[in-house]
Write a protein that binds this DNA or RNA. Structure first.
Lengths: 225, 225
DNA sequence: ATAATACTCGAACGCCTGTTCTGTGTCAAG
DNA sequence: CTTGACACAGAACAGGCGTTCGAGTATTAT
């Protein structure tokens, strides 16, 4: 017959250490040292703290940077810092060209004119790319299911694959629009996102400038606050 | 005549240090040491790094925990921890009721079934509230400018003010819908977000269950990645 | 020119911290 | 009883790290 001393994987000691790391991190903005953990959890020896820390690492509750001071960090509750800052470079509306930022602009973003998006929300490996955001002005994009005030996040590009939602400038028509892009035999098909609406066709002779690929749309439904 | 050596507040050296701290933090999950900064920025003396760090602290670009190893952290680009974790409790579609989570559910969110939203994106003081997210299934919400696959974030509530976008369950019609809510003299007007579409009117005798107020809509336009 | 300021270097000091090793007591299995 | 895994203490070691000081050089103002 075999009896376990502590119920299962995590004993009371483990939990207390976990809690302490979390609260310490919140308060000090950086992780505690082994000795600080020991002090709080009434462990007089650093080796014992190390002992538990090893277990917590094996069980996946924490990560450790060995040899490095205060190299403990919680795994689960702290995926933080994983936010993406995207510069808000202007507005997008039917009658105006799309303001695509130059590469130089990406370095000097102004915190006020940018939005933050959690990385976990980002489509796969769109992360790390140069993205920019535009605020939709007017109701000219409703056929793309994008409303006035919405924020569209795009990645600058000149070409698109079939099925991509792109922002295009139709210089012949002097118009900016958001559509799904399909290249067909002798023309381009620009399909509205709203399935009840019909596509428009652009002859390949017509000027069609793809400005970017839409990565995300964010709609804040706040009202007079 | 007065010439400034470096353009304004931040010189090239300052900027490089700032950039390095940011990239190091991303890669190592913890801040660099003074010596590591010096190595990267071609500064041979730790005192010089300290010299610049002091300036960056005074100018408010970084925060320092003196005496503590790797106690540098960016202030501006790292308002981190300011993310909101919202439980994804299910799907919303025309033919199905809305799964509103019980209060107890909010505590035990599963990281996998939740999304993170930067607080700066949140409508004013929606922060700290109990919010939940639903994934839109089907194209039945297109009249609300919400497409298949979109994520709607709502705040549970039973009543709405005029102009709020609400998620309602019309039990008489056995239908879930997202509409702008207006209370009129003898009936409710449910206005589609798409301005080209007509509102529907619900008599006050009909059952109209408001399940929540829409706070945000997020559309990820990723395609087969 | 001269002085003040900004910037840079190198080295040494000393604390902080993670690591490791030895030793003790408990408890259950053989 | 012996064995061994487990939980813990204490001490010592070695390296990492922030701090400080003394000194030198360039740039700018007076």
């Amino acid at each position: 017959m075999m009896m376990v001393r502590k119920s299962k994987g995590l004993g009371e000691r483990h939990q207390k250490i976990l809690d302490f790391i979390a609260s310490y991190q919140r308060e000090h903005k950086h992780p505690p040292s082994i000795r600080e953990i020991g002090e709080d959890c009434d462990i007089s020896s650093t080796s014992v703290v190390n002992y538990y820390l090893d277990q917590l690492e094996k069980s996946g509750n924490i990560e450790r940077d060995r040899k490095i001071s205060r190299g403990v960090r919680l795994t689960a509750p702290t995926p933080m810092g994983d936010m993406f800052r995207i510069p808000m470079v202007g507005v997008i509306q039917a009658g105006e060209p799309i303001p695509v930022p130059s590469n130089a602009d990406f370095g000097s973003f102004t915190p006020e004119d940018s939005i933050e998006v959690a990385m976990s929300l980002m489509p796969t490996k769109e992360k790390g790319k140069e993205l920019f955001a535009l605020k939709v002005q007017g109701e000219s994009m409703i056929d793309a299911m994008v409303n006035d005030g919405d924020i569209v996040i795009l990645r600058p590009t000149q070409d698109a694959r079939n099925g991509d939602m792109v922002a295009v400038w139709l210089s012949d028509r002097n118009e900016t629009t958001l559509k799904f892009f399909f290249k067909e035999k002798d023309k381009y098909r620009l399909q509205p996102a709203n399935p009840t609406m019909k596509p428009i066709y652009i002859d390949k002779s017509e000027a069609l400038e793809i400005k970017g690929k839409v990565v995300m749309v964010i709609r804040k439904v706040e009202r007079y606050n």
